[in-house]
Nucleic acid binder design. Structure first.
Lengths: 217, 217
DNA sequence: GATTGTGAACGGATTCACAGCA
DNA sequence: TGCTGTGAATCCGTTCACAATC
């Protein structure tokens, strides 16, 4: 079993390493050193080595890391070896943009980097607007939010992206939690309350912009 | 002068305190304790007190913090007492959604919470598409990216939101840096290189989703 | 010679705990 | 009494530095 006390900061750096190693793979490097990974990600080589050894001894002393091997290890650690089905709550402007963001990223990636298909898929969307429910938006079927639990099962949704207006965010998240989902990416500019078995990552643009204002000019 | 070594983690929590104190203000509380602020934000009361004392002694022993006074102090610290003009690079799906995100948030807030107008404004957008340049999108004028430096001056832009495709992100950021802007909110899924006088906050959805996948299910 | 893996040292952020004040 | 402000203690993540190994 994994998950024996891996610090959150380490988990959050793993996708950075994955991105780096896929870039080296694309450029047909066979091995990569912790120094090179550090340069790419903006971290120290010691940091890279220490992070990776949380999960195993992937390198060879005097040589470095085998690119293809490390890439596959990282994908397995992050559970990205099979499709990850994602639900989207709220098909407003932002929700629609997120659908395209993924679709575009995927198709661009498939075309240019066939070796590293992204396994993240928005597989179902949820809204309350009768004009949207029952339609298919850019290939993504749209259901009423009341069907959430049912569709989570049906589509095997493991992550929910919350793009509903702030005033409904907590309510929707409560339903998402009830449906059994354990990972939420939240865009609503509110502090959400969830059981601590559920992980929420927030992309709170208001917070980001307000803290940037401190440094601006 | 401020900015004498305030840790970044502290600055990033300030908007959270602002949000909390505005909520207490809205509910017409006159004073608020560090405990209440901690409950709202999910932090300890000691953390709240220590953070605030980086900027001054805002509280009264035995009483707590005066809500209106603390609110104004936080707005001044974050430089949110006058309009903060923001530029947007890339008016694709995501860029358009961001324009609406702000506009919607602002108008909703104005209607419901006239006491706390948000001072963040997307004042100009930039693209290279001839079909977009010269138009006005949802009240925001759209300029060619070549006019960046000129319009940064003209509109007093202090923050740039980067919503261009990944492959142009570094190039655009180089221009943004050259224009003199010191704060960037980046949505492109790439690691950017900037001088360390420039601050980049990233909203990298790919990274967020990939790290969530680790915890999912 | 090069580079990993890691114990030890370091540093910075969080929490504790209490003196001081309303 | 209640709650702030803060030095001291603690915790935790990062960096150092080097033995082990290819």
């Amino acid at each position: 079993m994994r998950k024996e006390k891996i610090p959150d900061v380490v988990v959050r750096r793993l996708p950075l390493y994955l991105r780096a190693v896929e870039d080296f793979d694309r450029r047909e490097h066979v091995v990569v050193s912790s120094q090179e990974l550090g340069d790419f990600t903006g971290l120290t080589s010691a940091q890279v080595r220490k992070d990776l050894t949380f999960f195993g001894e992937f390198g060879k002393q005097g040589i470095g890391y085998d690119v293809k091997f490390l890439r596959m290890q990282l994908r397995e650690i992050l559970r990205l070896t099979t499709d990850v089905h994602i639900g989207l709550a709220g098909l407003g402007n932002l929700g629609k943009a997120l659908v395209h963001y993924r679709v575009d990223a995927n198709s661009r990636q498939r075309a240019r980097f066939p070796v590293s298909p992204d396994r993240l898929r928005i597989s179902a969307a949820f809204d309350v607007d009768p004009a949207k429910v029952g339609t298919v938006y850019a290939g993504v079927p749209v259901f009423h939010i009341d069907q959430l639990t049912e569709k989570v099962q049906e589509y095997g949704l493991r992550i929910m992206v919350n793009a509903v207006p702030a005033e409904y965010a907590q309510e929707v998240v409560d339903r998402v939690v009830a449906s059994g989902i354990k990972s939420i990416l939240n865009f609503a500019p509110v502090t959400l309350t969830v059981p601590d078995t559920v992980r929420v990552h927030s992309a709170d643009l208001t917070l980001e912009l307000q803290s940037l204002a401190y440094y601006a000019e």
